[in-house]
């Protein structure tokens, strides 16, 4: 039973798909099934309406999530009332969304339901904390939005599973490269304990990190506009903490300046990088470093060799090339289940 035993030590896990039809739903279904067999009590929710409740292109609702008996799930009232199985309402939130109040219920039998929970990182974080506190739950699962990595931020869930597949890219090498890029960002090394301690509580403003671990606020809020970027680069600092967003333009500017090989950039976690693969790798190749304060535990990568447009990749070939490129276990969920 691949990788399920790895989940057990954690109290929260997110499943993120790199694109539509990359098998995220199957992957979640597999995890739920196996964890239930291990007598674990699970709570699940999914990124809400802002995420992908309705596919804006095809207007199809997001897929239903398979629920095992005894599982807790958090969704909005409008979806809850459409269920075709028995469940007990355990908690209702005070504030209503456009789709009714958000509630948490326990499935009294197996069933399927559209799940739409909290919409932003902060409320997801709160959901994980509250759920673990209120109910006898072993693990909280977050069904992440497609191509939005923030729910998998270590600030929300401790561990993650990545789903990728033919639908993301039909060309084997491109698919592997694209996945490799996400993987490399996820696996950026963690900052030293000393640096981590001095930066952890800083949420705003760019800071210079000095040799002895002390920090200095340079009085620049973020580095997004070109004027801000010029100012930040002009600092000429070797070690910088960027608590907000590390954008492509900033990374490009660092990469192009002299002394990039001695640079070390600190970020909160992977979800704060928004860079093109080319810029990202060029910076690293020059010797620059990017370190994160917190790193998510990537437990596995799941692949779906089938694209809805009818393209099939050979499962073994895909799994093998992916494993070679990433160096972590890669699974074809459909194969395992069969």
């Amino acid at each position: 039973m691949p990788f399920v035993h790895q989940i057990i030590p954690y109290s929260s896990l997110s499943v993120v798909g790199l694109g539509k039809n990359t098998g995220k739903t199957e992957c979640l279904r597999y995890i739920i099934k196996r964890l239930s067999e291990k007598q674990k009590t699970i709570a699940v929710t999914s990124i809400g309406i802002d995420g992908e409740s309705i596919d804006r292109v095809t207007a199809t609702p997001k897929p239903e999530i398979h629920l095992e008996k005894g599982m807790y799930f958090t969704t909005v009232g409008a979806y809850y009332l459409q269920k075709r199985f028995t469940a007990e309402i355990c908690h209702v939130e005070e504030n209503a969304t456009v789709l009714g109040k958000m509630l948490t219920a326990r499935a009294l039998e197996q069933g399927q339901l559209v799940i739409a929970g909290p919409t932003d990182t902060l409320s997801l974080q709160r959901w994980v904390t509250n759920t673990l506190q209120r109910f006898p739950v072993d693990i909280c699962l977050v069904d992440g939005a497609v191509s939005r990595l923030s729910p998998a931020s270590p600030a929300v869930t401790q561990s993650m599973v990545l789903a990728t597949g033919a639908a993301y890219s039909a060309h084997l090498k491109t698919l592997v490269d694209k996945t490799r890029f996400v993987y490399d960002i996820l696996q950026l090394p963690v900052a030293s304990q000393t640096v981590k301690k001095s930066l952890e509580h800083i949420t705003k403003g760019i800071h210079i990190v000095k040799e002895d671990g002390t920090v200095e606020n340079v009085g620049i809020d973020s580095a997004l506009t070109s004027a801000q970027i010029r100012k930040v680069v002009a600092l000429g600092a070797e070690r910088l903490y960027i608590p907000g967003m590390l954008g492509n333009a900033l990374l490009q500017a660092f990469m192009e300046q002299k002394g990039a090989e001695d640079m070390c950039l600190y970020i909160k976690d992977f979800s704060h990088i928004f860079a093109e693969p080319r810029t990202f790798y060029a910076f690293l190749r020059k010797g620059g470093q990017i370190r994160q304060l917190r790193k998510v535990n990537l437990l596995a990568v799941c692949v779906n060799p089938v694209s809805p447009r009818g393209y099939h990749m050979r499962s073994e070939e895909l799994v093998e090339s992916m494993e070679q490129a990433l160096g972590v276990p890669v699974y074809d969920i459909k194969k395992i289940e069969a």
Partner: peptide
């Protein structure tokens, strides 16, 4: 009332 409202009354 729907099920959620009944829950609210019980709560």
């Amino acid at each position: 009332l729907d099920e959620i409202e009944l829950f609210e009354i019980k709560h």
